[in-house]
């Protein structure tokens, strides 16, 4: 495709600027890029979470498109209302987009999201996944991976961080038979940009799950946000996939994985893991990939 949006062709305008996110914040990069692709017609809805905390500090308001803060649980239902309202008053060329964190999506907002997909409202829901409730000081969410240390899943002698695996939200959303769902990572922005572009043209509900590392919560230096997001994909703990027309599609099928230890032990939240814990994570990864490779159609080779 020749009309793909690239770094050269993407708009120079910034719609999320001067915000108070921590240095090296992955979530703010996801929001910035998403709004750059959607343009000024985007009407964004942000629930309680980092991006509303850093974007709206009256009188310092960092979104230059129309934006509103929703209740924590109500991102998707407010999107429904925004879309219906904008249509009713005759606004043209707009896109109602939700920008919620992992807690606001997988735990607190899942009922509203499920309802919106059920009604097939014409909205785009983007979940930036930093794998814990970072805004309130790093508490475990449904998307916190196995073994990760948070303030509510501390690591001690007997229990080594979070006991439960990461909720598989992408497939939960796909199970609603949604018109379009995708996973992405800020480690691969061209892929993320394509998926937003594609999702914005979908009639009906679209969902994008983008991994956005948090230097503070993950225990990494602030300049390594992108690198750790790439390592996460390379070691197989995250995959780039799409769900469309009732079919799953893997965008990238690596022939071998990089070292899972390298990825885990580079982060403060996994420093306490022992060989046996890493073994469990590696086993979960291998089981997951075996299922993906066996069941998902149209598997593509390297992008």
């Amino acid at each position: 495709m020749s009309n793909k949006i690239t770094a050269k062709t993407i708009t120079d305008s910034e719609f999320f600027y001067g915000h108070k996110a921590c240095a090296g914040c992955g979530g703010s990069l996801a929001v910035r890029i998403a709004l750059k692709v959607l343009g000024e017609g985007a009407i964004s809805v942000l629930p309680a979470g980092c991006m509303s905390a850093v974007g709206f500090n009256y009188p310092h308001l960092c979104f230059s498109n129309n934006s509103i803060i929703s209740t924590f649980a109500g991102t998707a239902s407010m999107l429904t209302g925004v879309e219906a309202g904008a249509r009713a008053v005759g606004i043209k060329n707009f896109k109602a987009v939700g920008l919620a964190g992992d807690g606001g999506t997988a735990d607190i907002g899942i009922q509203a999201l499920s309802g919106a997909i059920d009604r097939n409202d014409d909205i785009l829901y983007i979940c930036y996944d930093n794998e814990a409730y970072m805004n309130t000081g790093i508490q475990k969410s449904g998307l916190t991976p196995f073994g990760a240390k948070t303030t509510t899943t501390p690591s001690g002698e007997n229990i080594h961080g979070n006991l439960r695996p990461k909720k598989n939200l992408f497939e939960i959303v796909a199970a609603h038979d949604i018109p379009y769902a995708a996973t992405a990572s800020i480690g691969n922005l061209p892929d993320f940009i394509n998926k937003i572009e594609k999702a914005s043209k979908i009639k009906g509900t679209a969902y994008i799950h983008v991994v956005a590392p948090c230097p503070i919560g993950w225990g990494i230096p602030v300049n390594e946000t992108i690198e750790i997001a790439r390592k996460m994909m390379d070691c197989g703990l995250w995959y780039l996939a799409e769900y469309e027309n009732g079919k799953f599609k893997l965008n990238k099928n690596p022939s071998d994985f990089s070292s899972i230890e390298d990825y885990l032990l580079a982060q403060g939240r996994f420093k306490h893991l022992e060989a046996a814990d890493i073994e469990i994570l590696a086993l979960q990864r291998d089981t997951k990939w075996a299922t993906i490779r066996k069941n998902w159609n149209n598997i593509q080779e390297e992008l």
Partner: peptide, 11 residues
């Protein structure tokens, strides 16, 4: 509600 894109402090 207030005006969008209104910055008052530097980072």
């Amino acid at each position: 509600a207030s005006e969008a894109g209104y910055l008052v402090t530097k980072n």
